[in-house]
Design a protein around this nucleic acid. Structure first.
Length: 272
DNA sequence: CTAACTCCCTGATAGC
DNA sequence: TGCTATCAGGGAGTTA
């Protein structure tokens, strides 16, 4: 499932293939994903892609008409750049034909992803992103910041970390791994975090996200690189998806609870 | 205001 | 074998 490291990996691969390209034709094979796709041909045909950037788990492609194509990969989204000769796969929903003869293809089995065209605000991003918190690697993401915005919150710290308004792009896998590395229980109320624990959360989340980006992200079941290869970070996961197995630190069986509708693996001995 | 739901979707897997 | 139930989960929306 594409989280920040996976989307960053996709972004780096798409940038050289799409930057400066003009979209010559749009083919739709589904009427909608999370939102309607029917406006895309009219809004994209003839437009030039000026850049490819990432914010949270979104890829943003500003166009030459003050609009931007905004992509989200949901659970199972895959982007490809291929020749038009490759037959369409069952769950490929959109083709963007490019002026160099290649085709950008968007596949999404579970259809939680999205492609949308939105106007750009003064800061160069769609309005939609105004309410997002800082990127994990930005200077604004500090222990002091986390400490301050967690005060008086009773929600579990894991839900807090996964909130895009707090910090952008940390999903279930990396929140789970960060909390394990920081020795903090996922159900701990966010408001009870100490300054020291906020420091650990900042340090560990950056460390883990960085390592995952270096490994090309995590492939659990569906995530694929633009070239079809897989991310190699799955072997580095300490406890995500390892319920019942021995904790790599203390050997205690890893437990799993549900928080905010998401499964949350943790070691009850190492995480308090 | 926060927090806890529900829904969208498909494929893999378990149980009968 | 073939059916049904369950689970996975990001984000938007709704409810308490």
């Amino acid at each position: 499932m594409p989280e920040l490291p996976e989307v960053e990996t996709i972004c780096r691969a798409l940038a050289p293939a799409l930057t400066g390209r003009t979209i010559t034709r749009v083919e739709l094979f589904s009427p909608k994903l999370r939102s309607s796709l029917t406006p895309l041909p009219e809004m994209l045909t003839g437009r030039r892609i000026l850049a490819i950037t990432r914010r949270a788990r979104y890829i943003i492609a500003p166009l030459d008409n003050a609009l931007a194509l905004v992509m989200h990969f949901g659970m199972t989204g895959v982007a490809r750049i291929e020749s038009p000769d490759v037959p369409r796969r069952t769950h490929e929903h959109v083709f963007l034909h490019l002026d160099d003869g290649f085709v950008f293809r968007f596949e999404d089995i579970r259809r939680f992803g999205n492609l949308e065209v939105l106007p750009l605000a003064a800061n160069g991003l769609p309005m939609f992103f105004q309410c997002f918190g800082p990127e994990p690697f930005s200077d604004q993401f500090t222990a002091q910041y986390l400490y301050k915005c967690s005060r008086n919150l009773k929600c579990p710290v894991k839900t807090f970390l996964m909130d895009n308004a707090v910090v952008a792009g940390i999903g279930n896998i990396y929140a789970t791994e960060t909390l394990f590395a920081a020795g903090i229980s996922p159900c701990r109320p966010a408001g009870t975090l100490s300054r020291r624990q906020c420091e650990k959360l900042v340090e560990q989340s950056r460390h883990i996200l960085n390592a995952a980006i270096e490994q090309g992200g995590t492939t659990i079941a569906d995530f694929k690189h633009v070239d079809g290869s897989e991310g190699k970070f799955a072997v580095c996961l300490q406890i995500y998806g390892k319920t019942g197995e021995a904790c790599p630190h203390c050997g205690h069986p890893i437990q799993c609870i549900r928080l905010g509708g998401r499964s949350s693996a943790f070691c009850p001995k190492c995480q308090k």
